[in-house]
Write a protein that binds this DNA or RNA. Structure first.
Length: 568
RNA sequence: CGGGGUGUAGCGCAGUCUGGCUAGCGUGCUACCUUGGGGUGGUAGAGGUCGCAGGUUCAAGUCCUGUCACUCCGACCA
């Protein structure tokens, strides 16, 4: 490609609202352009990069025996009603009607459609397992699109769905996918972790997220310093904590404690560590068909993890309860506790409080707390993992210290079980001739997001730094002075030799000055530039590596071979 | 969803508070000259219904009402 013909509108200035390097540089270097909130176009070089990432994903997927298909972007609402997600999915689900007032949905993911594809066509265990995948555009009407390609409304995702006769087969495929994803992200040269995750509304039992470690990530992940444990903070577990001081032994009693509503005030009043207090978090749980007040109890010095809490009570979401709602349910903000709670109020207690003694909690009475409280008389089903893991907590696997870091989710794999197949009546005959729903797995990769992630992980103050696997072109042959015929002739010859050898090369034949072309090279971030300039008179050219910006002087006749070796 | 901000030339902005003649600046773009190893320097140009609709006024980019779009912080993100 000749730069003079390439549509790559580069600019000195970044868009005013771009805050992340990946967003700024991808726009400035002419890879993408925004057309609306969360909507981006891929310009020629952006498309090349996107296709390269797509090709790597496809290559590794095909190797596992998964088969590529392509499902429609517009899907009938009827399928979503069958699975039950039409109501459950929130505003992110973009619903629309056709001229006949039939309802449709822009596919944010395709479990429903893929089940419809195999339903009544796969009838026997002999046809299983089967794995179908696609790499297509998805639409989720995000409440707040941001960060360029990292959180758009329209994006390109690889989504795969596997069908199995039993759980064992499903788990086998899950392991294959974990391995495959590892290969894909390794080929892309990314620093990532596979972490334990919450499954969210996609549902199912086990799920793992692939997180690229990056300062600008939106997710908090917990990582063990000593072993390989890593988890999304929504799912992270920790070893039970020990007390930080001796337990304050006391007989069970009610104390008058005016003006002590917060944990700090209670701890100060009783002169004890907040560790021995019980924090009550009162939430309103939203279910598909009702709302209810739910109270969560954790240690005073712990924080409630909202996703865990949502899962504990099976709600669609939790919102803060208003003062009126708290009062209406017979509760007293600041004086709430698990003992003598009004009977109709649902509650859950953190696992770490089970069978603990000598605790202090609210008495469910204005201005009173209870001391010497023991946690023995609650049903096991009340106890759930509710706490948010903190910096410095200990690992459940090895006891090592854990820390919290930021990550960008680039992949998520799920064991769905029979959830969708049951709901949608997709069954097959097993070895015993019995009809049963498929076991399913589903596996996603954010392909367009990866374009941004590559730059988030690899850039400097001058611009993008692409690696050989994803660069739009591998070598930028820069003609320093286009009017110098010797330079131009030599560069053109070298450029066509490189192309003939199969090295993707770009010839910067624009009538711009040297500095201008170098700035563009650095902004766009091709792995190498070959400068054909004033040194040519002495028989030399220069090779610049983008990553280090180091220049090497080469004899002009050896340049071709040296570049060939770089990409051999 | 809660709280802010912005909309004027391709891009980035000033002008609006305090209404007034032909709406400016930087950059980019076109032509010519100049320069030719780090976004050269110069001359001359093209390019704008001031987001949209309505209102007040002798007069609206500027004041009022409505509306749309974009965006920032936080919540949410299946």
């Amino acid at each position: 490609m000749r730069f003079s013909k390439l549509y790559a509108p580069t600019t000195k200035e970044a868009p005013k609202d771009a805050t992340l390097p990946s967003h700024q540089f991808l726009v400035r270097a002419g890879f993408i352009s925004q057309v609306g909130s969360g909507l981006y176009n891929f310009l020629p070089m952006g498309k090349i990069v996107l296709d390269k990432i797509r090709a790597i994903v496809k290559d590794e997927m095909d190797k596992t025996g998964a088969q590529e298909i392509q499902m429609g972007v517009v899907t009938p609402a009827e399928l979503w009603k069958q699975s039950g997600r039409y109501g459950v999915f929130g505003k992110e689900l973009c619903r629309l009607k056709d001229r006949k007032e039939n309802e449709f949905v822009l596919g944010p993911t395709h479990e429903e459609v893929v089940v419809d594809i195999v339903r009544n066509r796969i009838n026997s265990y002999k046809q299983l397992p089967l794995h179908l995948y696609q790499i297509t555009t998805k639409f989720r009407d995000e409440g707040r699109p941001r960060f360029g390609l990292l959180r758009g409304r329209e994006f390109i995702m690889k989504d795969g769905y596997s069908f199995h006769e039993d759980e064992a087969s499903m788990k086998e495929e899950f392991a294959v996918m974990e391995e495959t994803y590892t290969k894909i992200f390794n080929r892309l040269g990314l620093n990532f972790r596979a972490v334990e995750a919450d499954s969210g509304a996609i549902g199912g039992s086990g799920s793992k997220e692939f997180m690229v470690l990056a300062d600008n990530g939106e997710d908090d992940i917990v990582v063990c310093k000593a072993c390989s444990y890593a988890a999304n903070i929504e799912a992270a577990k920790r070893a039970k904590r020990a007390a930080d001081q001796e337990a304050p032994e006391a007989e069970y009693a009610k104390f008058y404690t005016p003006d002590t509503q917060s944990i700090d005030e209670v701890a100060t009043f009783f002169k004890i560590s907040p560790f021995f207090t019980i924090k009550s978090v009162i939430k309103k749980a939203i279910y598909a068909d009702k709302e209810a007040i739910v109270v969560f109890f954790v240690r005073g010095d712990d924080a409630l993890q909202e996703t865990k809490a949502t899962n504990a009570c099976g709600a669609l979401e939790l919102v803060d309860a208003s003062e009126d709602e708290i009062k209406a349910n017979g509760l007293f903000a600041g004086f709430c506790g698990p003992i003598k709670l009004p009977e109709h109020v649902e509650f859950f207690i953190d696992n770490e409080l089970k069978e603990e003694k000598n605790l202090i909690c609210g008495a469910n009475e204005q201005d009173y707390h209870l001391v010497g409280v023991s946690m023995f008389n609650f049903k096991d089903s009340r106890y759930k993992d509710l706490v948010e893991v903190k910096q410095g907590d200990r690992c459940t696997c090895c006891g090592g210290e854990m820390y919290i870091t930021k990550g960008i989710e680039v992949g998520h794999i799920f064991q769905l079980g029979q959830k969708y197949a049951s709901a949608m009546g997709a069954t097959f005959l097993d070895k015993n001739g019995k009809s049963q729903p498929f076991y399913m797995g589903c596996y996603g990769i954010g392909v367009s997001r990866l374009v941004a992630v590559m730059i988030e992980a690899s850039h400097d103050e001058n611009g993008c730094i692409w690696n050989k696997q994803t660069a739009p072109y591998l070598v930028d042959v820069i003609v320093s002075n286009i009017k110098d015929e010797a330079q131009y002739d030599f560069a053109q010859k070298l450029y066509s030799d490189l192309k003939n050898f199969g090295v993707e090369a770009l010839l910067d034949d624009r009538t711009e000055r040297f500095g201008f072309k170098m700035k563009d090279f650095e902004l766009i971030g091709f792995p190498y530039a070959l400068i054909v300039g004033k040194g040519l008179e002495e028989g030399v050219v220069e090779l610049v590596e983008r990553k280090t910006l180091e220049k090497k002087v080469l004899q002009k006749d050896e340049a071709l071979n040296i570049i060939k070796e770089l990409f051999a």
